[in-house]
Design a protein around this nucleic acid. Structure first.
Lengths: 242, 242
DNA sequence: CGCTCTTTTGACCACACTCAACAACGGTGG
DNA sequence: CCACCGTTGTTGAGTGTGGTCAAAAGAGCG
């Protein structure tokens, strides 16, 4: 599992959407959550199953997770990868069950909050609940835009786009060392997130490697040329002169 | 424009998420909204532009609209078609601006509500605001699932899927006569919603026609064999015996 | 009665899928 | 310590779905 420095842990907690409901919230300036509402979830285990009446929401503290649906034709569509600091199942505060399943991609640490606790305390803290709903809506809107973008790109563009997306998110969260970030995804994860086959994902990544844009070894992604990769991904970063 | 019977108009209004904020809400049992907050929007006109700080939300009363983004490569991705009764821009109650544009697809009638009116009155009606937020979240979650499904289907499956989706929604809303519903989409709309080209959309629809599953003339869609069409669309309706 | 926009159809091509074999890696047990 | 096995990743050959380009017919409109 990835080991966070104290600094990152602290930042995750002080910026957490659910911070007011944290059992250790009195000690927010120190990292004092140990044991209080924290659960460890092993790699590959299910955090939530599609359609269940879930009783709790989480904040992903350490490790990676992802949410996905399985379509009638048996193919898995990964909707989103979840990184440290991300809320998990937040929409359960608004609707009774969700149409996707969440799995741990690596071993994860989860800060867990019972829905009923939040509901009870939220009576006295409408403003906080509102802020949580805003976060929830913003996340859904953002992700809708992401899924839409995939549809209009070929596999090379999709792959570059995914790598840059994750690279950027990890950078924001302080996980970048040089140009390298942790990268626990298998080819199957990449393929199912992009809607291509494992075989083709391998080819596409191979091509990006051969062009010198990235290095991708087990567990580690290095982006050598972020600008060119952004061009390949058809991202509007630094608009190319027409 | 499509002409609703009194019954449908009434139903739309009594079930409206924003009904309490309607200026004519005192007369809810009759259709008495004429002029009060209702705007007509001509075919092709913009209802909201991506990124703007919109000051109002709407309920689509009559006609069709759609929301979309234009990607850096110039292609348009239609995110959702909006039918009579659908809220438009509801997430503006939670976030300041949205990453998509909304256009009228036919001439439309919109019930328009100023955000500031809702904000003011909502102070005294938290429960109502909550209900609206729930509707908003449910819509986003549903649409995320829809977009994800598209990714994993071929063009034939996608097309059948879109036709059935719209057919079902229109049926729910009482627009079906026999097996026929109004259908104002051009090939370009279908193509941009499904992420295929206009040329190929034409071929795919032609193939569905030739197989006798649908008739599609300008403005009118008839579904002759809903069950077979559902099979083509890979929908889990009436699970085929293994 | 032209003009434009939409739809259809054809020919050609390439991107991505299928099927298959094989290499690399890690874990397990003899 | 090595042989064995399952998982994951890589590569190749052949195929087909869907894109591109182009032309022409049809529909709407001034």
């Amino acid at each position: 599992m990835n080991n966070l420095g104290n600094l990152q842990l602290l930042r995750v907690c002080t910026q957490c959407v659910l911070r007011e409901f944290c059992k250790a919230s009195g000690k927010q300036t120190t990292i004092a959550h140990d044991g209080a509402g924290i659960h460890i979830c092993r790699k590959g285990r299910s955090i939530y199953h599609q359609g269940n009446a879930g009783g709790q929401v989480h904040i992903l503290r350490e490790g990676w997770a992802f949410r996905f649906t399985v379509l009638p034709n048996g193919r898995r569509q990964i909707l989103e990868f979840l990184l440290p600091g991300d809320p998990i199942l937040l929409p359960l505060l608004l609707v009774p069950y969700l149409p996707y399943t969440v799995h741990a991609l690596t071993e994860t640490a989860l800060c867990t909050f019972a829905l009923k606790d939040i509901d009870r305390e939220a009576q006295a803290a409408k403003a906080i609940l509102r802020r949580i709903e805003v976060t929830c809506a913003a996340g859904l809107i953002r992700n809708e835009a992401r899924l839409a973008e995939i549809n209009q790109r070929n596999s090379q563009e999709r792959t570059a786009w995914l790598l840059l997306l994750l690279f950027g998110e990890l950078k924001k969260r302080g996980y970048v060392e040089g140009n390298t970030v942790p990268f626990p995804l298998s080819l199957a994860h990449v393929a199912d997130a992009l809607g291509i086959t494992v075989t083709h994902a391998s080819r596409t990544l191979g091509s990006l490697r051969r062009e010198g844009l990235i290095s991708l070894t087990r567990e580690r992604l290095t982006v050598h040329d972020e600008q060119t990769l952004a061009n390949v991904a058809l991202l509007p970063t630094a608009p190319p002169a027409g």
